[in-house]
Nucleic acid binder design. Structure first.
Length: 417
RNA sequence: GUGGCUGUAGUUCAGUUGGUUAGAACGCCGGAUUGUGAUUCCGGAGGUCGUGGGUUCAAGUCCCAUCAGCCACCCCA
């Protein structure tokens, strides 16, 4: 029994759910394409170092969430927990620096060993874009605008809020981090246990703590904007300026921090109230140091990732399958003729099928069950005259059509809805 | 990884203070005379009550463990 259950945190995408996923990824791919992002795919596993080196030794993802294993050759491999590192590795591997800036879209499964919840799976699916090789704030604007456009195409933009923050450049961030650590160090006795841990691993995360005691401390903590150098301020100003020009609204959130080490400057999230604790639907930021950390040429980058499950859930749209044409033959001769008839309908681009067995009644039932638009009824009498009865199942009307005109006739009839 | 709630047919759920062959709806399968589905009527199949222990004369009902789902935390998409 346990063996027949899917592995914890994984689940099967049956046609109905698959269609909802396809809708998300197809619309996203199309919209990203309009913004000049081409789709790529990187392997779903990489050498462990690709993630360990870029995500930071202390991040939760690396310390407890990676699916890591040794292959038969003794290499340490990891199922990708996210795709940015993989795309950057591919950028280096393929010597794409000469083509920079490059713009990529991706869609596929990711793996994280977390406690499952609704909207949070161990194998889940993300779409994302990466813009590599552009250091200008206008690149940030384009990446965010593309994300926003995708949410619009999915019909969920109004359910989300764009939260925005800057992490500044390395100099600003280091300066701030030092002050912040000093501050919390002085009040360590009042800090929650989680946050004491954060103090060494990722002190800026304390700013986003949900603990009441922490929040009181945070209220009096040093403010990041006081430590942003001029360059960082100008950069962020250009980003917000671009968003303003596009009429994209956002909410400044100084507590919006990134868990992953490679982020700098722009950090953003599209969040929603509709998904409980899993409110982040699309998140990203600038990662200028990442490619250098991987061993490639210093190259700036910015991108975001979004969870397909969460987007599908948020949109609530369950697309229906295309309705087929059901061919209903009676008798051996008609059955044989139906074979080529179905083939020809398919060649004409129509979804068509015929049950594999059964008398007329069974086949009509089958036609109904597969939600057919029309049933093409073919008996000996029709066969001898080279025609078929075409019955529209929704209203029960029936008409006669010559077999050699059937594909054309149905193509026209069905395209008219 | 931590804490809480839940676990009965394919699905959504009933199952009284532990007590005889565990129910319903929907779905599925079959039938209601000769070449017409979906509506109606009749009938049928399908559950080791998540799994494994324990308490009891007796457990779907109580206890423990385990697995899974859900919720919150952690973290994140």
């Amino acid at each position: 029994m346990a063996d027949l259950q899917p592995v914890r945190g994984t689940h099967d995408l049956l046609p109905e759910e698959m269609r909802a996923h396809r809708r998300v990824s197809d619309l996203a791919r199309g919209t990203a394409g309009l913004h000049g992002f081409d789709e790529i795919a990187t392997p779903i596993f990489e050498f462990t170092n690709v993630f360990a080196r870029t995500l930071g030794d202390t991040s939760d993802v690396v310390t407890k969430e990676m699916y890591t294993f040794e292959d038969k050759g003794g290499d340490r491999l990891t199922l990708r927990p996210e795709n940015t590192a993989g795309v950057c590795r591919a950028f280096i591997s393929n010597g794409l620096a000469q083509h920079a800036p490059v713009k990529y879209f991706y869609s596929g499964p990711m793996f994280r060993h977390e406690r499952p919840q609704k909207g949070r799976m161990r194998q889940f699916h993300q779409i994302g874009i990466e813009l590599i090789g552009a250091a200008q704030p206008l690149a940030d604007v384009e990446v965010i605008a593309c994300g926003r456009a995708i949410l619009e195409s999915l019909g969920v933009a109004d359910d989300t809020v764009l939260e925005l923050n800057t992490l500044g450049d390395t100099e600003s961030r280091n300066a701030y981090r030092a002050v912040l650590v000093d501050y919390f160090q002085d009040h360590i006795d009042r800090l929650s246990e989680d946050s004491r841990d954060r103090l060494t691993r990722n002190p800026m995360r304390i700013l986003d703590s949900k603990d009441d005691g922490d929040r009181k401390l945070v209220a009096d903590a040093p403010i990041f904007s006081d430590y942003l150098n001029q360059e960082s301020q100008d950069f962020f100003g250009a980003v917000t300026g671009g968003l303003d020009a596009l009429g994209i609204t956002y909410k400044l959130n100084p507590r919006l921090v990134r868990g992953l080490d490679y982020y700098c400057h722009t950090a953003f999230e599209f969040t929603t109230e509709a998904l409980g604790a899993q409110g982040t639907v699309m998140a990203g930021g600038r990662y200028d140091g990442l490619i250098g950390m991987l061993g490639g040429p210093e190259t700036p980058g910015i991108g975001w990732a979004a969870g397909i499950e969460r987007l599908a859930m948020l949109s609530g749209v369950m697309p229906e399958a295309d309705r087929p044409i059901a061919v209903v033959p009676m008798g051996e001769d008609a059955e044989r003729r139906a074979l080529t008839l179905v083939r020809d309908l398919r060649k004409a681009g129509l979804r068509a099928e015929s049950a594999f067995s059964g008398n007329m009644k069974k086949r009509m039932k089958h036609a109904n069950k597969i939600n057919a638009v029309v049933a093409v009824i073919l008996g000996d009498e029709e066969l001898s005259r080279g025609v078929a009865q075409v019955k529209t199942l929704d209203d029960g009307t029936q008409r006669e059509v010559a077999l050699d005109r059937l594909a054309d006739d149905l193509s026209v009839a069905l395209s008219q809805g």
